[in-house]
């Protein structure tokens, strides 16, 4: 079933599942960087994005996507939530 709205805790749980590392649940917080702090490698990032798209019924356009959205879990939550509501996502960089 598709979910509406994503929380930082749900993202952290998803990262923990993808990495098969329960320590993520205590190590990561809303300000953690999804690539560097969570340490997702390229294959894990693929699985993570696939789950996001599937569970939250969004399709990320990587031609437009600013990778800085992965700079914090809370920032990525905002991105997914806005994508779900169809709001225009503002670029992270001016």
């Amino acid at each position: 079933m598709k979910q509406s709205g994503v929380s930082a805790q749900q993202i952290i749980q998803m990262i923990s599942d993808v990495k098969e590392d329960p320590a993520c649940l205590t190590k990561l917080g809303p300000e953690s960087d999804i690539i560097h702090d969570a340490g997702l490698d390229s294959l894990q990032l693929i699985h993570f994005i696939l789950r996001i798209e599937d569970e939250y019924d969004v399709e990320i356009d990587f031609e437009e996507f600013d990778m800085d959205h992965l700079g914090s879990i809370s920032g990525f939550c905002d991105f997914v939530n806005q994508a779900q509501t169809g709001d225009k996502i503002q670029p992270m960089e001016a």
């Binding site: 294959l43 693929i46 994005i49």
Partner: peptide, 24 residues
């Protein structure tokens, strides 16, 4: 990791397709 990815792409085509979409 390239080697690991090869197997994952074979096992699940959706993983392979996503790898094409994410800029590296």
């Amino acid at each position: 990791r390239v080697d690991h990815s090869r197997r994952a792409y074979h096992d699940d085509f959706s993983v392979a397709l996503m790898s094409q979409r994410i800029p590296q």
